[in-house]
Design a protein around this nucleic acid. Structure first.
Lengths: 211, 211
DNA sequence: CAGAAAATGGGTTGTCGAATCCAGAATTGG
DNA sequence: CCAATTCTGGATTCGACAACCCATTTTCTG
């Protein structure tokens, strides 16, 4: 829908589509690795292996490219996690998701933080349109987490409000990632997620007795 | 100590000190309201009511000014919260702290996020020196939270690891603030803090029985 | 297999902002 | 109170980067 950041004509040949995708992917990587302002259009040009006015052939301006990157990262995050997110309807599934998140950060040496959250923080107060795009990405992510908890709740395995818990889990993840990124250690992420998941477990019938 | 971002001579007259302070305060406000890159040195100049090469008289470059702003915001956050942070050695004190944080965000209409966290996210991957400055600010903040929990633990009122809990509280706060900022609603902050504090309470002897 | 439309390359322009210089005013210390 | 030092103002340079233009090549369509 609002993906129509394209310049005017909607006609894109196969080659054009591929070039556009390469530009977005390169821009996403550079923005992830150094922030939005750090990613020069010339850097993007080079990294994508395109030259000259290519970028302006596919995007009206840097803002349009940024919006495309936000959507791209949202898709990437959700696609990558989908197999795990589908399993979030049990304590074991939640714990496994936690482990993967932590392990991934360790692998990345805590660099980059959250692809969506980092972008969001940078645009929040200076770019309303981009802020809304990030907000909508977060809503989708939150919904994916909520689905599992709602299922548990419906099966009578979980007390408490699934909506609130989903939001709290996402918040813990974001806060944990931010602190991990800044301090360059995974511990903040570990304890942040462990505390929320412990709390979720304490609200299950299994966890009730054995804390 | 590392506050010596000053240019060369350490001699500052009373008037000079005041001017410098005005510059840092203005820069902090602008960076908070629109991000670091958005805050032009010319904007700072205007907002601080100084003119010409004033800024370069007090700071070597924008980087030095940024470091001064990070320390300024750390002090501001800790000073402002000190009365509350001193009371974090009881569930009631923790809840009150939570209420103040939430109320403040509501007052700000969820704009700005965390003065330290926002800066941190923006510099994390592009400015190692600034990242370390933010990291050290977070450590001080974390220590202040930890103090109360450690006291509870020492009095035998709290089971579990006070260090981990302090970190988890800070992470929940940061994640809640980020989501609140991006979605422009306080709920993420509320539920994030409530979940961690509920968990802390469940680890106290008072909370043990009554969930 | 043309003709049209889209894609590509590279060069160019204009603006904005960081950084620097120097001359004149205020402040401080002896 | 006066000389040294610090502070202030405005003008200016310099580089970087976003944005635009046009000529050429490639790809699609009928």
């Amino acid at each position: 829908m609002s993906t129509e950041t394209r310049i005017q004509q909607a006609r894109l040949t196969r080659k054009g589509e591929a070039t556009r995708a390469r530009i977005v992917a390169a821009a996403a990587r550079l923005m992830y690795e150094g922030g939005i302002t750090e990613a020069t259009l010339e850097d993007v040009r080079t990294a994508a292996g395109v030259s000259g006015s290519q970028i302006y052939h596919y995007f009206a301006d840097k803002q349009a490219l940024l919006l495309a990157v936000i959507e791209y990262q949202t898709e990437a995050v959700l696609d990558l996690q989908m197999p795990l997110l589908d399993q979030l309807d049990s304590i074991a599934g939640l714990r496994q998701w936690r482990d993967v998140m932590v392990e991934y950060q360790r692998l990345m040496q805590c660099r980059g933080g959250c692809p969506i959250g980092s972008l969001g923080s940078e645009v929040a107060e200076s770019n309303p349109e981009a802020r809304l795009a990030v907000a909508s990405g977060f809503l989708r992510w939150e919904a994916a987490i909520r689905a599992g908890l709602t299922a548990m709740h419906a099966r009578g395995e979980l007390d408490g409000d699934p909506d609130g818990l989903a939001l709290a889990i996402l918040a813990a993840l974001q806060g944990g990632l931010l602190l991990a990124q800044i301090q360059r250690r995974v511990r903040p992420l570990e304890v942040a997620l462990d505390v929320v998941l412990d709390h979720v477990e304490s609200l299950t019938h299994a966890g009730r007795s054995a804390t």
